[in-house]
Amino acid sequence: MTAPSALTRAILALGSNLGEREGTLASAVADLVDRPEVRLQNVSPVVTTKAVGGPEGQPDFLNMVIAVDTTLSPRELLAHCQAVELAHHRTREVRWGARTLDVDIVTYGDERSDDPVLTLPHPRAAVRAFVLYPWSLMEPNATLAGESVAALAAKAPDMEGIVHVLDVPPAVVP
């Protein structure tokens, strides 16, 4: 993975199922773009979803997707996303467990990588409606690995039960 010489479009997925979820998402977006190397381009509506995987009985998630243009390399962007998670009290005790904030890099330009630290595109994005559906609302013509994001969302196993909550989180305007 190489550092870009110009701006690269990245799609980031954000989710929260602990604490003040709406406020956390809005604050996290602000934190993610609070550096000159990351510019907010678009924001999806917020949806509520059941937890996918992980321990039973978790609270519902609020999920959203943002598009950013960045000059950070993929690994630098990952480190930045993880720092924002940490600032919002993210702990990693149980895989796919409840969390105050989760930020995933879904795509980074056309970059493809099987690196175990950062696989691009995100290895499970194509089957996760909680990522695909808000992304399709934000960018109706978006594609992932050559397929329509909207079509992928429609056939994702977790599509049933997704509820549109907010058009844009409070205090987040691209």
Rank of each mutant, 00 (worst) to 15 (best):
H164N: 10
A142N: 03
V117Q: 15
L77R: 13
D158N: 03
L152D: 00
D69C: 04
P74E: 08
A151G: 05
A153K: 08
R90W: 12
D114Q: 14
L120S: 03
Y133I: 01
P55K: 13
H122A: 07
A83D: 15
R35N: 00
A79L: 08
Q58R: 03
G109Q: 05
V172D: 01
V106G: 12
I66M: 08
P121Y: 14
E147Q: 15
R128Q: 12
L132F: 04
S136G: 09
S27E: 14
L7R: 10
L25M: 02
P121K: 01
H89D: 15
L62K: 12
V172K: 01
D114K: 10
N42E: 14
I11E: 02
A145M: 09
E20G: 04
L86E: 14
P174G: 11
H88F: 07
R9L: 11
N17H: 09
V103W: 14
G19Y: 09
L18D: 00
A87M: 06
A67P: 01
A125M: 08
T70D: 06
E76D: 15
D104C: 12
V103S: 12
V52L: 11
Q58Y: 05
G161L: 05
G57V: 05
N17W: 05
M159V: 13
N141P: 01
A3P: 05
Q41F: 02
A153C: 06
S27I: 00
S27D: 15
D69L: 05
P59C: 05
I105Y: 09
T8A: 06
T70G: 11
E111K: 02
N17Y: 07
V47P: 08
L77E: 13
L118M: 05
R90S: 14
P134M: 00
K50C: 07
G54P: 06
V127F: 00
E139A: 04
C81G: 11
K155W: 07
L137Q: 15
P121F: 11
D31K: 14
L86C: 08
D167P: 05
S44W: 02
A67F: 06
L40V: 07
A171C: 06
V29N: 04
L18N: 03
S73I: 09
V172T: 10
A129F: 04
V65A: 05
G54M: 05
A6R: 03
V84N: 10
G15N: 04
L14C: 10
V172C: 02
E76L: 08
